[in-house]
């Protein structure tokens, strides 16, 4: 189950402050990068929810995000629905898709789960790619952003859109924490540790997995719709399995099962990518080496490492001050 530690509060506060500062002061390109980070952060929260707390290592979250983006664009651009209705529709459709995938894959474990989700992701990719209705390889344009002028917010402005995404990310974070703390979230973590035990307790294991996977899919769909609104253009590349792989990289780079860590990972990867690609066309090489280094170091990503180094000490000291009873945190990283 997910628990906030003082260190996590500090990290969250720093992330929020950094994002606000960037949103207030950055130039055009800085805002682009910020929005990219915020949307990726939503996607990796969704992934960490299933991978870090349910052991469901998904290689189709990129594709789910793509489903959200395409659903949003189709509802708005082709069916002519308003952006708000399209957004809700996209989230619902992606959630339903994810629920089905989660239900079908619930019996698979470990590498088989990874492969099964990969298969579903690639299926979606191939379908979108070769369907002229969705614009095929060339993608689709003419996507509108949400109209919030009634609230005095003009989302066509990059700065407002960045702040809007930041707000949405905050809500997504709270929702994720709420899900993980709910009965469903607790059952999920129980399933991760021992499916048999949970089954013996009378739990329908596949339902728990499918439900959480569906909720995670809704977040991925939301991220997809926001990404479509951001770029105002979508292409099948969104659904490619390497996007899912990259999301997984971010989760691991940041710290699996910490929620805060993956968001830090999102910042790290996007910034690194932009800095490196300006210097060398071989920036994939550097990212690859870094990834190998982080995984080989056996630390649970950047944030996991920080937690291991200073977190334990800090928590203890703060707990001594605030609470007489030190809490034991059941985590397996």
């Amino acid at each position: 189950m997910f628990r906030h530690t003082p260190l996590r509060y500090i990290a969250l506060a720093l992330l929020a402050a950094g994002a606000l500062f960037q949103a207030a002061t950055a130039g055009y390109f800085g805002l682009e990068i910020l929005i990219e980070i915020l949307i990726l952060a939503m996607l990796v929260l969704a992934l960490d929810m299933v991978a870090g707390f349910g052991g469901m290592v998904s290689l189709c979250h990129g594709a789910l995000m793509g489903v959200g983006a395409y659903a949003f664009a189709t509802f708005g651009g082709i069916l002519g629905l308003t952006p708000l209705v399209s957004l809700v529709g996209a989230i619902a459709l992606t959630g339903a898709t994810a629920w089905v995938i989660g239900a079908v894959c619930a019996r698979s474990h470990g590498i088989y789960f990874i492969m099964a989700t990969l298969a579903f992701g690639q299926m979606a990719y191939s379908y979108v790619f070769q369907t002229p209705f969705f614009g095929g390889d060339d993608g689709m344009g003419g996507i509108e952003r949400l109209d919030l002028t009634a609230l005095g917010i003009d989302l066509t402005d990059s700065r407002s859109f960045a702040l809007f995404c930041l707000g949405v990310l905050g809500l997504v974070y709270l929702a994720t924490v709420a899900v993980l703390r709910s009965g469903l979230g607790r059952s999920l973590t129980g399933v991760m540790h021992s499916e048999q035990r949970m089954r013996a307790l009378g739990l329908t294991v596949w339902r728990v997995k499918a439900d959480v996977f569906g909720l995670s899919g809704m977040i991925a769909g939301l991220a997809g719709a926001l990404s479509a609104m951001h770029i105002m253009y979508i292409s099948p590349g969104l659904l490619d399995w390497t996007v899912s792989g990259e999301a997984l990289v971010v989760v691991i780079l940041g710290g699996l099962g910490t929620l805060v860590g993956p968001m830090i990972g999102a910042v790290a990867l996007v910034v690194l990518k932009h800095e490196l690609s300006a210097i060398t066309p071989y920036w994939h090489l550097v990212v690859g080496l870094l990834l190998i280094g982080v995984v080989m170091s056996r630390a649970n990503g950047i944030f996991g490492w920080i937690e291991a180094q200073i977190g334990a000490r800090l928590d203890k000291r703060l707990n001594d001050i605030t609470r007489p009873q030190p809490t034991e945190e059941p985590r397996d990283a």
Binding site: L248, L285, I292
Partner: peptide, 25 residues
């Protein structure tokens, strides 16, 4: 050799990183 005892996810990721490295090499 060092990855043998790690879970499937760590292995998937190390070799995912290796794809990037070998591609650029």
């Amino acid at each position: 050799k060092r990855m043998r005892r790690s879970g499937p996810m760590a292995q998937v990721l190390v070799t995912f990183g290796l794809i990037f490295v070998l591609l650029d090499l």
